[in-house]
Design a protein around this nucleic acid. Structure first.
Lengths: 224, 224
DNA sequence: AACGTAAATATTGGATAACATATCCATATG
DNA sequence: CATATGGATATGTTATCCAATATTTACGTT
């Protein structure tokens, strides 16, 4: 037995969660071959739930499957990352503009709490969980649950790369926090125009910085 | 990550394709229980590729899995369908506005061919394939491959319901075709503003009509 | 006859063993 | 040097078995 079994999830689900979290944390880097038997042995399960988990992760976009070759951790190209950020900016600004008219003080408090927790984490330790909690709190009043779920998927896909950037550039984290606080104020003032503009900048700037950092790393790697 | 995988198809994938197409065609209606052994027997395969296929379809959102109860064909609520149409309108109009400046005559011809094939199908036989080919041709010059792939996913989720509507209301199909032809002309004229407006109407109207029809059917069913 | 409960049955989740098949890689052959 | 050939490795699939859980059936009580 591999630890506390405090859930009713199926093994497949648990294996999928484990592997996904390792991918998101960067523990399994892009390009890593995932061997069924290895994972199965490590977790003390048979190949079957592992296979089902890998299929799951495949359709979530985290691994690519090639028949008789197996699963490899997906890697997003710079272009794809930039594209995802652009899409995020488009859809999330829309969600925010829909949400602001319906925002209550309770919604804003929820966002405030998430923002504070996010800001209080140590430099260099970026919590995607808290960042998402903040953004989700802002969008939830729009009532667009399906759309928010899709956006969550985009956040997850980008997560590893953001984490990478934050580890290098701890200033971004503080800027991000400042943006969050400003956003809450603008939402409270029902200043949709400025709020949307700030959010657009917030996301776009994140994407731009990430692209720069990744290009830098790629060049450094090519030279080294 | 998102793109089509051109593997040699494994059995699991073939089973997934088969079940998915039956769901999309409405052959397996929402709420239908999918029995592993039944499908396996029907296709002459063992349960394992069927199970993997069902997991695959689960993460694509076409079935819901409950442990020890199995797979049930998912059903979208009216609200969810409306939301997906709104999201489509938002993102697709954006894609179109990005695409128009880069459109070549070749792109327009591709759209034209798809539109003609779409218009030439018999009334009542709505081809989602051709409809998608047309829309994809319009968006492709934007170069936003990931986004287009995501939009394709939305089209697929809605597909069964659209099909239902078209079977009832064959007029919609002709209106749709007329919109397509007009869209091509506006794109050729690089009239981004009018093209985007028309596309917005085109998608929104589709969503509105679908919502009406589905509500009608629900009421009829409640009375019957 | 209606109802609640317990046993029987069916179905899924998972493990294991076995075999088929595809890929990779090193080595021998021309 | 190019190639093909064979073994090692890993995946894809089947068959069979068992455990856990749902569903249904049967039964006894009221």
């Amino acid at each position: 037995m591999v630890g506390p079994t405090l859930n009713k999830q199926t093994l497949s689900q648990q294996v999928a969660d484990m592997v996904r979290s390792r991918i998101l944390s960067g523990d399994y880097a892009g390009g890593t071959q995932l061997r069924q038997e290895h994972i199965a042995g490590e977790l003390g399960v048979s190949r079957i739930p592992v296979r089902e988990a890998l299929h799951q992760l495949h359709s979530e976009g985290f691994v690519t499957l090639v028949s008789h070759k197996g699963a490899v951790v997906s890697e997003l190209s710079l272009d794809q990352i930039v594209e995802l950020y652009e899409l995020r900016a488009r859809v999330e600004t829309w969600l925010l503009s829909l949400a602001i008219p319906h925002m209550t003080e309770k919604d804003l408090e929820r966002a405030q709490i998430a923002a504070e927790k996010f800001g209080n984490t140590e430099a260099g330790i970026y919590s995607h969980q808290l960042n998402w909690e903040f953004h989700e709190a802002l969008y939830a009043p729009s009532g667009r649950k399906v759309t928010i779920e899709i956006i969550f998927g985009l956040h997850e896909k980008i997560e590893r790369y953001t984490k990478l950037m934050m580890a290098i550039d701890s200033v971004r984290q503080k800027e991000s926090h400042a943006d969050h606080l400003k956003l809450i104020e603008l939402c409270r003032a029902k200043d949709t125009l400025r709020a949307v503009n700030l959010l657009d900048m917030h996301i776009s700037e994140g994407g731009k910085q990430l692209a720069l950092k990744l290009e830098e790393m790629k060049r450094a790697q090519a030279l080294g």
